[in-house]
């Protein structure tokens, strides 16, 4: 097997995540799809690290994870406060960009 298959898998997962962001309305599921896309990127970075024979790709994947953790914390807080004011987690209801 050619290790480049990991890149194809990463591309597939990223595509599924992007389609999910476009299709779903529930803000939490949209957020999960973003996480899926970030994970697909991490897989590609790890595969690149193996391709080039150095660890820089893994470092970038590590930083991506940190940024994803911070993003999840803030994003879920936004969803919770949106839900408090609107009693709905649908992204359609939050179209006014204000509470």
């Amino acid at each position: 097997m050619n290790p480049v298959n990991y890149l194809y898998l990463a591309a597939l997962l990223f595509t599924i995540g992007a389609a999910g962001v476009l299709i779903r309305r529930n803000a939490i599921v949209v957020f999960m799809c973003i996480e899926l896309m970030l994970n697909a990127c991490n897989l590609a970075l790890v595969a690149f690290s193996r391709m080039h024979g150095n660890l820089d790709g893994q470092i970038i994947a590590f930083f991506t994870m940190v940024v994803a953790a911070a993003e999840v914390v803030v994003g879920l807080a936004i969803i919770v406060s949106l839900f408090r004011s609107r009693h709905s987690a649908s992204v359609d209801d939050a179209s006014l960009m204000k509470l």
């Binding site: 779903r24 309305r25 529930n26 939490i28 599921v29 957020f31 999960m32 996480e35 994803a68 953790a69 999840v72 914390v73 879920l76 969803i79 919770v80 839900f83 009693h87 709905s88 987690a89 649908s90 359609d92």
Partner: peptide
């Protein structure tokens, strides 16, 4: 361990009445 469990917490907190329209 952490992020997905956070998601589950928020789903339990928020998603109870939030059916996808």
């Amino acid at each position: 361990g952490a992020i997905m469990m956070l998601f589950l917490f928020v789903v339990m907190l928020v998603g109870v009445t939030a059916a996808d329209s």
